[in-house]
Design a protein around this nucleic acid. Sequence first.
DNA 1: TATAGGATTGACGTAAACGTAAAAGGTGCG
DNA 2: CGCACCTTTTACGTTTACGTCAATCCTATA
Lengths: 154, 154
Amino acid sequence: MKLVSPGEAAANTNDIPAEAGEEFVRIGEMAKKYGVTLRTLRFYEDKGLLNPHRDGSTRLYTRRDKARLKLILLGRKVGFSLRDVKQMMDLYDPTGTNTKQLRLALDKSEKQLARLQKQRALIDDAINELSNSMSVVRQMLVERTTAPQASAAG
Amino acid sequence: MKLVSPGEAAANTNDIPAEAGEEFVRIGEMAKKYGVTLRTLRFYEDKGLLNPHRDGSTRLYTRRDKARLKLILLGRKVGFSLRDVKQMMDLYDPTGTNTKQLRLALDKSEKQLARLQKQRALIDDAINELSNSMSVVRQMLVERTTAPQASAAG
DNA sequence: TATAGGATTGACGTAAACGTAAAAGGTGCG
DNA sequence: CGCACCTTTTACGTTTACGTCAATCCTATA
């Protein structure tokens, strides 16, 4: 009777009302599995992005929470704020077609895509400016190491 | 006898000890000229990046301050922190060759360039992921608007 | 029983670059 | 004189996504 797959770091072994093949995972496991910290998971919960079950006060994450976390991480990767992610997730309705949710996601995505492209342009600009400056500096350094004895000061 | 070039918004006209053709500019002028706010100029001063003269308590910026501000703005454009900018500026010595300053600048620039390139890679990644997601969402929306009457629910 | 290893909530700290009052003083103009 | 306009200092507020204690609790195991 394990909470998670065997071989993993599982210390406590509470008797959890695992009626069917429900896989409950505690916060430590969850964090390791997705490469986030405990703090992060609690933070996401505090922000209403996650809603794990509880066994007393212990958080228990199901595959539903895992799916949500994956979405959060994807959202973050593409540059959405947690607020945006929440807005989109809050529209999810397991009984409907979620057309509204999808439309909002698409709308936000288009705007985010535009932001990303603008950002890339800014970065390209910065790279160019920086490269130019570096050339100038290198040139100045060369003049300071090769010219001294050739100038009128010698 | 003007503080700045004529035709600009100049209200006060203090008698400033303008011995030679020194061009003193007050904070309002300075801000307009470089597209920053008063708060920004004061902030930079507070951080030791600028050091305008004073007429009583009024700040007076010279072309030296302008040069420094230009450098600050360039630094910010290429992504340096103000602290980095200050570090580099602090090494400036009008009586020397500033080799140390140039080397530091070059060193920091190389690291910053690497950061920028990494950022660009991340953004490219994000753009790709986002584009993919958008395709998926669009497809889902299509299925929700064309399929309904064709499915078993009709 | 002592210890080690999770887990909990609460709450202040961090980074960067200013924004935004608030309260006050100087100046020229009509 | 009074208003409009510019300037000053002081100091708290903003944003985002957590980091980092701190104090406490629970449990299994040697």
